[in-house]
Design a protein around this nucleic acid. Structure first.
Lengths: 359, 359
DNA sequence: TCCGCCGGGCCTGGGGCCAAG
DNA sequence: TCTTGGCCCCAGGCCCGGCGG
């Protein structure tokens, strides 16, 4: 009845692998006891396992199997000082590009033996980001990948958490190494393509202006027009959604002089096309439309959408490579805030054509 | 020359917070030293911080700020036996539903103070999943959420890693608690809706047959037709992509008697619509089309797509809630493998209409 | 005497170093 | 020389005991 009397049987009960009640995951020590070796030897087997006699190793392995041993990663991380985990900060995972990038990052990280810790900051306020970063570093990551870097622009944002950071969207202030699609090249290609078809000029439906990617696409569009001596129509902006594209599209549809539209992403382009069609303007006969991203569905839009294909897979891969590189050569402050660019590719489909004669 | 002699100077060198060379993140001990208290008190302040005098706490907090102290989560996890992290296993993050669910899970987890560790298994082979699960549990998670459960069906798959598991797709074998959209209700609603419009029967473009969700949608469609006394056309299946929908659509377009199609997701519906249009069959005048998911773009398809809206946000929330629940009452084997269903909602748009007179 | 605040010692699971067989 | 075990450390948390008002 006394606590002692209860304790003794419990103890012996807990020792075995068949313990009832509280189940404590088996530790190295348990394996060691069962195999009749020291925990040190178990450690050696669990790891690279150099210098362990075959017979001993076998005994240890079988003990592990019997007990269902899994090493405790927390303890491991504690001694090694490495978590083998990367953190990813993002905003809107329903945005196609972000999801794709995350998927690619996850794959690349997995190949390198790293897991990926995701935090989806609700809104791009500095506070939310700050908290997200805190949570991640406070969690256990060896490095950070920030998708959609515009948040880093927030003044007063301190992400100097000590861990290496890579930005997957181009860092306007070039404070961190970055990997990004060559937005300018993509936007330029789209604009020049439409001009090359014979359109007098090209209208642009931009993304939200706090997006660095959106700003660069708009800037390149602007430059491409100027370089070609084409008039530069006013910039209309949406928020990446098809709905916003539709809104802008209705406005554009009222102008007879609009014959070519370059939208900063496919979803907005979709909205633009619907608005044009509803206003009685055919795509591409009356108006040509080009998007950006090449979401898998865009080839099946009505009409199939000409667009600029981004290689998200490559962006994700490069991010991970760059980050792991930084992690490995930690300490050496050679953090050249470089920029790796990934080339996009123009894909032409049925939504674009030379301007019709019915000008 | 003895170890002791070497140890001493090294020690004192590393002590200071201003140590050069190797930068070691500040520990409780460092904070304690600066604040002139014991590390125990620092621990108290860092945590719930009961029983610390206001003045002392202030001193500790300021020391933390000065040193930029962040507690080491590995050590914390080690002693507490909790990681405050959830694992998510998924397959294709470019699938809209998966990405949305993940985002919701991430949000809900964050609110509960948990981070989310994602592993994106490349292919749904048992091996890949096994490895993914291993990696996660070997990593550091208190529980697992499996999105797209069909993988769990693989025979010989052992995910009994000791951590609680919740399935976000309905578990065919009901081995684990699950949260899922009420697929049957959604498919039934879509089918009955089309029948109600006056169509003689409804054709179905199903998802891949190894998807449990796809199978249930198809089953409910079948039942709804039988219940209504409508003929049951053969089932055509795709793989969720618009491309596969297009392929099936071309086939359906050749049959004059097809006047209503229910696709198992919006992307396939998009492909179907393109194929129909290309074959000269107007939507909805000649053929009505209904999708499933309600991806944000579907309202801007041509024509805007009638569909069944899934509440991914709710699914994610419920998954996390269910999982945390299991984690908290760990040990008690009351793991009733329940099923929480989330109701979908039929959304009617322009892609569906009564059958035309030109039958 | 009791209570509120604080610190010492021990424990978590594993890995590195070094000595011993 | 190769294999193996003892010891200590990683960073923090909890139990308990002590000290003071």
């Amino acid at each position: 009845m006394s606590p002692r009397e209860r304790t003794a049987p419990e103890r012996s009960g807990q020792r075995g692998a068949t313990a009832r009640g509280k189940r404590r995951p088996p530790s190295q020590a348990d394996v060691a006891a069962l195999a009749g070796v020291s925990s040190q030897t178990v450690s050696r087997v669990a790891n690279g396992s150099s210098n362990v006699e075959a017979e001993t190793r076998e005994r240890v392995l079988s003990a592990m199997r019997i007990l269902g041993y899994q090493r405790n990663s927390a303890a491991r991380a504690l001694t090694l000082g490495r978590f083998h985990a990367l953190g990813v900060v993002t905003f809107d995972l329903s945005a196609h590009g972000n999801a794709r990038t995350l998927a690619a990052v996850s794959r690349a990280a997995q190949l390198a033996g790293y897991s990926v810790n995701v935090v989806c900051a609700e809104e791009p306020t500095g506070n939310a980001v700050q908290q997200a970063v805190r949570q991640l570093t406070d969690q256990a990551v060896d490095g950070l990948i920030v998708i959609e870097a515009q948040v880093l622009e927030r003044p007063g944002l301190d992400v100097s958490s000590g861990v290496p950071i890579v930005v997957a969207d181009g860092d306007p202030e070039r404070r961190y190494p970055a990997v990004d699609t060559d937005q300018a090249a993509g936007a330029t290609a789209a604009t020049q393509y439409l001009l090359g078809l014979g359109h007098r000029t090209v209208w642009h439906v931009g993304g939200p202006q706090d997006s660095y990617a959106a700003r660069r696409r708009a800037a390149a569009w602007h430059v491409a027009l100027k370089d070609a001596g084409a008039p530069v129509p006013p910039l209309r902006s949406g928020d990446w959604t098809a709905e916003s594209g539709y809104r802008v599209g209705r406005e554009l549809a009222t102008r007879e002089d609009v014959t070519a539209v370059f939208a900063a992403n496919d979803h907005m382009a979709l909205g633009v096309m619907l608005a044009l069609r509803e206003a009685g303007r055919a795509v591409p006969e009356d108006v040509s439309v080009v998007g950006f991203d090449d979401v898998p569905e865009s080839a099946y839009y009505a009409p199939p959408l000409s667009t600029v294909r981004q290689d998200f897979e490559e962006v994700g891969r490069q991010c991970v490579a760059l980050l792991l590189d930084q992690i490995d050569k930690a300490g050496s402050d050679a953090r050249a805030a470089g920029l790796i660019t990934v080339s996009p590719q123009l894909v032409t489909r049925a939504s674009s054509a030379p301007p019709g004669p019915a000008r």
